[in-house]
Nucleic acid binder design. Structure first.
Lengths: 138, 138
DNA sequence: ACAAACTCTTGACTTGATCCAGTATTATGT
DNA sequence: ACATAATACTGGATCAAGTCAAGAGTTTGT
């Protein structure tokens, strides 16, 4: 099983209550902001500082254990679904975020028609639109 | 010809020195931040307030005259290349931004495999990697 | 030229995120 | 277990990007 503590150990990270809390919160609430995660962790282990949250999120994202997405005009979101190539749908009206699998296959978005000499290591795709709820309301 | 003043008039926007300056700056420096644009306009017409810059950029982006891209971890960038479907390459090391045409055709990125009931109106693609300069330096 | 509508300026403010120094916790070797 | 070195956490200050609001200044249409 993928015990959170083991997960941290495998990546050479010291195990702290804060990191475990952050990991749990990210798993429990996909597409949450750093602030929402801090709230969640607080309700679990009592308290955590904003810096510890950013610190943990940054480190986990760096190790590839969680993924960070940053939509225009709002705070960064974090999710624990990594390793597959999926993208995001964001509602312009209410901000709801949904996962969407890549349209063309496994990891195709990494191929641009002309890479201008860049070495590309990631493609980030955000689809903007209106979610079903906001469509019916309008 | 696409005289900037005519462009504004055609969209029902009053013509002001600030807006013309912003248009010129966006055309002159693709992928510039709001701050860089303000600097550029200042060197052209003497002075402009931050508010007027954001105001003009927001209005022009709303009318579709310019495009706004917001990479993770940096300020929003603006460019005047609109109407075609192109995406962006950003260097993780130095932040250089380059244009890249869409890999698959005219406007294909609008089709996700499963839209979850959303009505999609735009697809935003950012390729992350390392630019040629930073590659040779490393 | 005049009035109405709109825009610009100024300054304070909000939010997301980071930096820093000091304290507390974790991991490691005995 | 225990001591020690390394690492992480706390709290406060700080920064940067954007936004809000009120009054002064332009632009447009008649």
């Amino acid at each position: 099983m993928t015990d959170p503590a083991d997960l941290l150990r495998k990546h050479g990270l010291p195990i702290t209550a804060q990191r475990l809390g952050v990991l749990r919160a990210v798993a429990a609430r996909p597409h949450a902001t750093a602030d929402a995660i801090a709230e969640d962790v607080r309700s679990g282990i009592g308290s955590i500082s904003r810096q510890a949250v950013y610190n943990a999120l940054g480190m986990l994202a760096g190790k590839g254990l969680i993924r960070r997405i940053q939509p225009s005009g709002s705070a960064a979101l974090y999710e624990d679904r990594v390793g597959d190539n999926h993208h995001h749908l964001i509602c312009r009206t209410c901000g709801t975020t949904a996962d969407v699998d890549c349209a063309v296959g496994k990891a195709p978005c990494l191929s641009a028609s002309n890479n201008a000499g860049f070495r590309i290591d990631e493609a980030e795709v955000i689809y903007w639109g209106t979610c079903p709820d906001c469509l019916t309301k309008a």
